[in-house]
Design a protein around this nucleic acid. Structure first.
Lengths: 134, 134
DNA sequence: ATAACTGCAAATGATTTGCGATCGG
DNA sequence: CCGATCGCAAATCATTTGCAGTTAT
């Protein structure tokens, strides 16, 4: 028999569900703790392996924050991310075709823009600490 | 006596010079090997410590690529970065005040945009591998 | 059946830290 | 002087990998 397909295991299923359930950009560790509630025996390496497979299959995508871990995102349509330097939250940014064209034109040579990633300070944090420190 | 100042050591000086000399976004390890030519006895941890100090003092800034290491940049004026997913090169992107305003408006809430970071495929790599894989 | 998958433990790569020795202001 | 900094080795953190046993197809 010639095998060459991915298998749907309870672990893979649970990892995908956890990324979706978390709603907003979990890290591998976040996913691990969510999945552990359904599958207490799962190992962290299985979570990493399955996140890798899901990214490879295009079911989710990986976003790197200014901090060291990767965050995962299951939203299929094209969008960018902003990372708040104060609270660490990741927010989606809608990007129209025009926005992407405008960005591409900033890079003069024929760059093909893939992902858009911004960092800054979110409205909440800007308001909260605006007085002490600018 | 009340001390609380940074000292200029030959190591710190050399690390800063190496970031500038490299010209274009070295990693900590790149800096280490450049500095070693002047100061063969320097240790990698000293390089890391001094890169940290220089970032803290605003003399250089850190850019995180899609791969795991940080890259350093000494160019003081406001600009963004694009990382080529194929060859790993980091290119600067000029940003006008208008560009920044346009980006800020994409994020509806009152986000203060700090850094702009894009990934994609540079012109050279897009041309080279455009035929095999799109 | 059998190749893809798992859990575990050990390995890796990047970066940080504790510590006794050193050096700059 | 004396605390900021150094070099070194060990520690940490996120992630990956080797392997022997398990499971989906």
């Amino acid at each position: 028999v010639q095998y060459s397909e991915r298998r749907m295991t309870s672990q893979r299923q649970a990892v995908l569900e956890a990324v979706i359930a978390h709603g907003c950009h979990p890290t591998a560790d976040d996913v691990f703790y969510i999945v552990k509630r359904k599958l207490p025996g799962i190992s962290l390496s299985t979570v990493y392996r399955n996140l890798g497979v899901l990214v490879e299959q295009g079911e989710i995508s990986a976003v790197r924050g200014p901090c060291s871990e990767l965050h995962y995102d299951h939203d299929g349509h094209r969008h960018g991310h902003v990372y708040c330097e104060v609270c660490g939250s990741v927010t989606d940014v809608e990007l129209s075709a025009g926005d992407l064209a405008a960005l591409a034109s900033l890079v003069d040579s024929g760059y093909l823009i893939g992902t858009v990633y911004l960092t800054g300070i979110c409205a909440g944090c800007a308001g909260a600490e605006g007085k002490e420190k600018i």
